[in-house]
């Protein structure tokens, strides 16, 4: 808390020194006013809802497909040697680089952005699920075998639960990457959403609006991570005995 107050104080100080003219570097106070205005005329609310809808759809698809593909890669060597190396290659491409293709394939609409979100989150999910499956301690597999478990049972009752901590860490990372993909996509090709409102601020030369949107994005990111993902990850790591109380 003290840290954030200090941050705002530094912001105010830079504003007072006039490194940049006021319209390029607005004061914390004017940005607060812009935030209140934006929420009052519902611009921000509509944008947040549009963005959240896209990210949730893209993220959930990424989660399901990512875990499924990750499990396949971890379990079957043949998939790992083929799709696995392909995925690593894909991972090197920033997901926003897919936008031109996405626009042509899906048109200038939600689907193109959802596709970008899906790519941003999906690859991370695949990689961390795969790592989870490969990281299962061999001794647990051997223990299950000597207790008469067959391959299917070992997969369901040992491999899957043992890779959950890694999958959950992946979910947290994937959410952060999904946000980046979303905002980048919306900046360039969208007529609603937070990214678009930010871009509109730039086009109209209203830096207060640009900064307001940046703050909203950061807040949503902080809230979802702090309230949901961080807690979930910590609970699971505790239960699995990976972290002490």
């Amino acid at each position: 808390m003290v840290f954030f107050v200090l941050l705002i104080a530094i912001w105010e100080a830079i504003y007072r020194f006039h490194f940049w003219p006021g319209f390029l570097f607005p004061s914390p106070f004017s940005v607060t006013l812009a935030l209140i205005d934006g929420f009052n005329d519902k611009t921000f609310l509509i944008a947040i809802i549009a963005s959240l809808r896209r990210i949730l759809i893209g993220y959930l698809i990424a989660l399901m497909l990512g875990v499924m593909i990750g499990l396949l890669l971890g379990k079957y060597k043949i998939f790992d040697e083929t799709i696995g190396s392909f995925i690593v290659g894909l991972q090197a491409i920033p997901s926003i680089a897919w936008l031109p293709l996405a626009l042509l394939w899906f048109g200038l609409n939600d689907k193109a952005i959802i596709f970008i979100v899906f790519l941003s989150a999906g690859l991370i999910m695949i990689i961390s699920t795969d790592a989870g499956v490969k990281g299962v301690p061999p001794i647990l597999l051997r223990a299950a075998k000597t207790m008469g478990a067959n391959d299917m049972q070992i997969f369901k009752d040992v491999v899957l639960p043992a890779s959950i901590p890694s999958i959950v860490s992946g979910m947290r990372l994937a959410w952060a990457f999904a946000w980046r993909g979303l905002v980048a996509g919306e900046l360039l090709a969208s007529n609603t959403g937070l990214g678009q409102v930010l871009m509109m601020g730039r086009n109209m030369g209203d830096m207060r609006q640009v900064i307001s949107v940046m703050i909203i994005i950061a807040m949503i990111g902080l809230l979802t991570d702090g309230l949901f993902f961080k807690k979930m990850e910590r609970n699971i790591r505790r239960k699995w005995g990976l972290e002490s109380r």
């Binding site: 001794i139 647990l140 051997r142 223990a143 299950a144 043992a162 239960k239």
Partner: peptide
């Protein structure tokens, strides 16, 4: 086979299961 169960040096319990669930694992299989 379950007629020859191994006990390892590292107890090799499943960390996500309680003692009860660990002990019943073989029966569940």
């Amino acid at each position: 086979g379950a007629d020859r169960v191994v006990i390892f040096q590292e107890a090799a319990l499943f960390p996500w299961l309680t003692v009860l669930e660990n002990v019943e694992f073989g029966l569940k299989m």
